[in-house]
Design a binder for these strands. Sequence first.
DNA 1: CGAAAAGTTGATGGCTTTCAAGTCGTGTGG
DNA 2: CCACACGACTTGAAAGCCATCAACTTTTCG
Lengths: 229, 229
Amino acid sequence: MPTAILANMESREHRSSSAGRPAFQAARSSGEIADSTPVSVREHELVFAEGDAAHQRYEIIDGAVMLFRVLPDGRRQLVELLGPGDMFGLTCDAEYDCSAETLVATRMRVTHRLDCSQVPASMCRMCRQLQKKVADLHEHSVVLGRKSAMEKVVSFLLRLAAMETGRRANGHVRLAMTRQEMADYLGLTIETVSRSLSELRRRGLIIFEKADWFHIPDPQALENLSGDF
Amino acid sequence: MPTAILANMESREHRSSSAGRPAFQAARSSGEIADSTPVSVREHELVFAEGDAAHQRYEIIDGAVMLFRVLPDGRRQLVELLGPGDMFGLTCDAEYDCSAETLVATRMRVTHRLDCSQVPASMCRMCRQLQKKVADLHEHSVVLGRKSAMEKVVSFLLRLAAMETGRRANGHVRLAMTRQEMADYLGLTIETVSRSLSELRRRGLIIFEKADWFHIPDPQALENLSGDF
DNA sequence: CGAAAAGTTGATGGCTTTCAAGTCGTGTGG
DNA sequence: CCACACGACTTGAAAGCCATCAACTTTTCG
């Protein structure tokens, strides 16, 4: 819901001259601008918002663009800084996973999404892999840059639970990492990870069977601590 | 220099059973293992190290792998967690930008790098863009997860100086971002960014002409504060 | 010129790190 | 089979870095 994101941005006072959709977008959707026509966008104008339908891809001719994500409470994390020659909007999903805004006046080429059908299958798979990686790394940047220790640990546990689908027995998740590895993943120390896990266990939000198997009795209760809702 | 990296890992006591090259790599380079043959790797074994020649690509059949980078002083940041179906080693550079180690016993398919020659040019460009993005995001994860406020700001300024090549006049760099945007990029507050810049200015490491133009009289002096050397 | 936004600087507090002892768990050898 | 040793993990106390709160200065722009 892009509008909500913008509302949050405003509420946290990020500078943004883009109260609504930029002018060039309206022109585009009415068919006035052909594919690959260079488009000019003024400084600090929104190009697209997180959650928008990902119909276009962009290539910067000159200027600069930032990609960013915003947490529900308004915390913002820039995930990419882009300059001439850089492309953005290359998602494989139906929607953009982050917002794009110009840092300075920028000219860019806009093209429709390529579809993968007439490309060697192996190449296509690699592209999808790369696109997934980029989305995951965006998400991880938000975790590293803008979340508290507890939010980091909770986000990690939820990610693990989501990713282990298939390898878990009846909702139990294998925690196949040492505290040091978790800490190095989350940008924390082992002690902080340990303390966070202990508190979650004390509060009954995670339950350990063995040292490296746990399960989540109430996923929503945990999600409330992730910073994502 | 992978050996140096391993030495650092050991010195910071990361658990790793891989003191040297894993057995399967020796087998591969002697030609015993054919392309696409599934390979089994034991738990906590190094698959490749940052700086190794990027000859192979990997796809996880089952198991789990972590990708990580290590700063010269031993601080480590895991940049990707991978499971079944995930690929890694997809760099467009000659060398891997991070190390890969198994978290658990893992089977994976190993293939030689695809070259881009017989693929549609537009697709190839997109792949390179995506690979560059992934490398940039790895780098940024290290900054967000493992660097101090001053190191973050310095890394940002150096990145800016490197990326603005061409758009600067005689070594002067445009700082086309607000303090809020820098803070949101680096996972800091505007006050901390402002204080860091003030200290750098006080120490003569950056010199401001106008509000948003600066230059770096002694790049190496600044690099010494980036955490990267 | 004046108001609003952006940026700077100082004081204080809190979250996370650091330092230091522990406990727990596992594998080995007596 | 049990004792021991080692590594992983936990927990507590103290310190430090960065965030928060607040006041002020500088810049921008109508």
